[in-house]
Structure formats: structure tokens, C-alpha cells
Write a protein that binds this DNA or RNA. Structure first.
Length: 288
DNA sequence: AGGATAGCCTGCGGGC
DNA sequence: TGCCCGCAGGCTATCC
């Protein structure tokens, strides 16, 4: 399940393939996974190849939370969200033909023909196009909270202020904090010694500072390891990550806590399976 | 208003 | 062995 580390890893592995490269063909194979926006106000537009970066040269890539954007040197911007099972791969034309669930395909100019494909079996992801990166920021990324990779204690504190919802739900809310999903929410709460059900507004200033620190550390560590791989994630070169091997709580319900050896328990919080250590994550904060 | 809930979609693993 | 069911999950729309 791609969360911030997987998307960041994808961004990093895509760049060598894309920067300075011209897109010779752009083809949308499934129209319902793409929304095109025209002008600064982002009014709906037809998904013409030019909107999908045909003829553009990729100038830079950027990421906010779990979303990725390719920005052409003329400003045209393609936003990619992987959803649950989305992948962006750069492969040979022969390899591309063998892939199922390919919803969009771009041919890159170069000595050997390479194609970038967007595939997404479960179709929770999608593509959004804009005339300029500013339009992406205004229309789509404007509703996102601060990026989790660089979240400060103060910024997290501001985002959580007054919220009665369980801290786990707040962490998953992309308008509050962008980039954290179910896996890293549980991992960060464990690392900070905070119980997932505590109302967000009841966290003390030190709790919030420790949580922001844990979020950054957990995400950075996962990026270093190439992202988690549970099932569907691959980077642009088709490589899986191994961060799942170091999860302390996610997927480990009923197993011993890596710190205190107590049994981890799980319940549904914020409509998501949530795993925590009852001893290390007390409602009063850490005992470590 | 803000929080809880349903639904989208496919692949896979467990149970029988 | 094979089939079926349930679960996994980000996000949006809708309800309360």
C-alpha cells in the first residue's frame, strides 16, 4: 500500500528516466481514471494527449503526501495518485505489452524505446492534469495538510488543535497531515508511545512533539529501505522494498512487542485495523 | 461542522 | 485440489 515513503521512492527512481526526456506518445487507455483541469480555476477539460504531456519535456518531479506530480518545462503538470495498488513503471515496449491493468502509457524519447506505464488493478488511484503546477496546488493539493516527511511539532500541534477525533484518525486525515496511511500511523504511534484512541486534542505539547518526531523518523527509515512491500508496491524499476520486515506493530497483532515482549493487540479504530502495545502505548503516554 | 459510514475494485489467503 | 468468502486499503460522497 503506497504511503509517503513508497511514493517518495517512486519519485526518486523515476527521475533518472524522466528528467530532460521528451514524451513522444501519450495514450490514455481508461478514461475514467483521469480528470483533466484547464486554466487556473481547473475547470473540467477533455483528456487530450496534449494534456497528458504529449510533446512535453519533463523538467522536474514533486510530491506532496502520497501524491506525485510530473512537471513539464512548459508548465503542464501531471498528478499521479497510486491509491491502493497503483504502479508507475518504466519498461521496454515488450515488457509493457505483458502488463495487465495498464490505464495509461507514455513513450519516452531516447536511444532505446522506453515506455512509462500507469497500472492500477484496483483503480483506487488515478491521474489529474493541470496547465500549471500552481493550478495543481490551488485545485488539488490545496486541501492537503503539511507534508508528513518534514512535519514539525508546532505544525502538528496546530493541525490537531481542537480535534476530538482519535489521534489515529487524525493522522490518517490527509487534510490534517499529508502522507501517513495505516501502516505508518500505527508505527509512528508505537514509536511515540501514544495510544491510537486518545482524542487528538488531549495530546500534551511534549506528546505532539514526540509524535511529529516519530512520524518523520518512521517515514525516513522506510524511504531508506526502499518502502514497504506488502503486495503491490514496486518502484519505477520494478524493485520491491523491504521495510515491511522492520514493522514493529503493523501486521503483528498477537505477537510479542519488540520492546516489552507483551502481546500486541488490535482493534478497529477509525475504520482501520489498528495494532498497538497496551503496555508501551498507555493513554498517559510512554513508559519507556 | 465535523465525525462516522458506505462504496469503489481486484487479488490473495484461509478455510472447508 | 478447488472454490468461496472476507479482507486489504485511500479517498469521496453521503449521512448523522
Amino acid at each position: 500500500m503506497p504511503e509517503l515513503p513508497e511514493v517518495e521512492r517512486l519519485r526518486q527512481t523515476l527521475e533518472p528516466h524522466l528528467l530532460g526526456r521528451r514524451i513522444e506518445r501519450a495514450r490514455l487507455l481508461r478514461h475514467d481514471i483521469c480528470a483533466c483541469h484547464a486554466g487556473a480555476t481547473g475547470r473540467p477539460a477533455a483528456p487530450r494527449p496534449a494534456r497528458l504531456l504529449l510533446g512535453a519535456t519533463i523538467g522536474r518531479t514533486c510530491r506532496r503526501g502520497k501524491q506525485l506530480a510530473l512537471v513539464a518545462s512548459d508548465g503542464r503538470t501531471l498528478c499521479i495518485h497510486l491509491g491502493m495498488s497503483g504502479q508507475v513503471l518504466v519498461v521496454s515496449t515488450a515488457a509493457a505489452r505483458a502488463l495487465s491493468h495498464v490505464h495509461a502509457r507514455w513513450t519516452l524519447r531516447g536511444e532505446e524505446p522506453r515506455v512509462m506505464v500507469f497500472r492500477d488493478p484496483r483503480r483506487f488511484g488515478g491521474l489529474w492534469t493541470f496547465d500549471t503546477p500552481d493550478a495543481l496546488l490551488a485545485v488539488r493539493w490545496g486541501t492537503l495538510g503539511p507534508d508528513a516527511l518534514t512535519i514539525s511539532g508546532d505544525a502538528l500541534s496546530a493541525a490537531l488543535r481542537g480535534r476530538r477525533t482519535p489521534i489515529k484518525a487524525a493522522l490518517l486525515d490527509q487534510a490534517c497531515l499529508a502522507g501517513v496511511g495505516n501502516i505508518y500511523a500505527d508505527e509512528a504511534l508505537f514509536a511515540a508511545g501514544i495510544h491510537p484512541r486518545i482524542p487528538a486534542r488531549r495530546l500534551s505539547a511534549p506528546d505532539t512533539a514526540r509524535l511529529a518526531d516519530a512520524v518523520r523518523r518512521v517515514l525516513r527509515s522506510a524511504i531508506r529501505r526502499g518502502g514497504s512491500t506488502l503486495r503491490d508496491y514496486l518502484d519505477a524499476d520494478g524493485r520491491a522494498g523491504d521495510a515491511s520486515a522492520i514493522h514493529a506493530v503493523y501486521g503483528r497483532s498477537g505477537k510479542p512487542c519488540t520492546v516489552c515482549s507483551g502481546i500486541l493487540r488490535s482493534a478497529v479504530v477509525a475504520q482501520r485495523t489498528t495494532v498497538w502495545c497496551p503496555a508501551c502505548q498507555s493513554s498517559r503516554g510512554p513508559r519507556r
